[in-house]
Amino acid sequence: QQIVSPDMLIKHPLQNRWAMWFFKNDKSKEWTANLKLITAFDTVEDFWGLYNHIQKASRLPSGCDYSLFKDGIQPMWEDASNKNGGRWLVNLNKNQRQTELDNFWLETLLCLIGEAFDDLTDDICGATINIRNKGDKLGLWTRDARRGDATLQIGKKLKERLKIPQKIGIGFQAHSDTATKAGSTARDRYRV
């Protein structure tokens, strides 16, 4: 038997417990039936244990999503924690699936588990990556779309961590606008 040093068994606790979800678009089932909780974790090592053993987002079939949300918040508009909120949306072009998507998603995950948003951590609900043939999307979901200053600070931090060039803007859309939109996209409440 291998003798394991106690140091090897120490795990680093996270500020929040996070749950990873997976969505696969099976049109024969209800939307909610297609959304599955993979597992929840609350240490750095358990995050990596999960991340290292699931498929990279860029290799998922079109129509699939990964979501990482605080434990207890479901990755849907209807959840009590999400319904007054919105999301910062990063739209990727088709080329970026191979060049940027996995890096963007990992960086977003590290922002979440590492509490990169500092005092605004309570505004953060989670994030979702949508794999779609028409264009992949990364969304950072927040709790309250009316909190303008907080929302803008979160957007700026996200843009900084993803190293999105200054000249490229990203928009924030309230879930209530997205749910009632007439066209293909909801209006931006904020932009950075």
């Binding site: 606790p13 090592e45 244990g49 990169a116």
Partner: peptide, 20 residues
């Protein structure tokens, strides 16, 4: 009292004993 981890700190554990 909050647990903040920067990206470099988090990345060093990707291939840690407990993670693999």
């Amino acid at each position: 009292g909050k647990k903040h981890y920067d990206r470099e700190f988090l990345l060093q554990f990707q291939n840690d004993y407990n993670a693999i």
